[in-house]
């Protein structure tokens, strides 16, 4: 009895901390592991994008990292704009006209773009996505979620 109570707490302690250590190391690996962002040779892309209240069409654009991207933004009704998250670029298109935004897709990941000109009730929700190579943040997030779920499943006691 005495022996048990003397030994057991320390044993629990070790297992618990060992598990935490493993989990933390795994989490660090998930967050910082260098993952390939795509190997395609950079090309030039011209993407035509139509803006109308309250959607972009197509709503999802895909390019490869390093590509030289030209977005031709046309508005079919009122003035709309495009603000690209992460790149912090803006362009505005008057109705019937085409505005041009050219940039190098030097950051990889998935970025939202949103209308930058108040165009009506749903304006703040006029949103599209630009995918530059694989969405590593999403994959890291999912991998971290697996670890987070494991924290719950792990029985640290005994």
């Amino acid at each position: 009895m005495n022996v048990e109570t003397a030994v057991l707490p320390q044993k629990r302690f070790t297992i618990k901390h060992g598990s935490w250590l493993v989990l933390s190391l795994l989490a660090l690996a998930v967050v910082f592991a260098p993952l390939p962002t795509g190997t395609a040779v950079p090309t030039t892309h011209t993407l035509h994008l139509e803006a109308s209240s309250f959607a972009f069409s197509p709503a999802i654009l895909e390019v490869n990292p390093g590509d030289l991207v030209t977005i031709e933004l046309t508005s079919t009704d009122v003035v709309h704009g495009l603000y690209l998250d992460g790149y912090d670029l803006v362009v505005t298109a008057d109705p019937g006209e085409t505005a041009i935004l050219t940039f190098t897709a030097d950051k990889s990941g998935t970025f939202r773009f949103r209308c930058s000109v108040t165009c009506g009730a749903l304006h703040p929700f006029m949103i599209g996505k630009l995918k530059v190579g694989p969405n590593l943040l999403l994959w890291r997030g999912i991998a971290l979620s697996v670890l987070a779920a494991l924290i719950g499943l792990w029985r640290f006691r005994q």
């Binding site: 309250f54 959607a55 709503a59």
Partner: peptide, 10 residues
Amino acid sequence: MLGPWGWLKT
């Protein structure tokens, strides 16, 4: 609200 689906918003 934050998705890319315009028809859903409308």
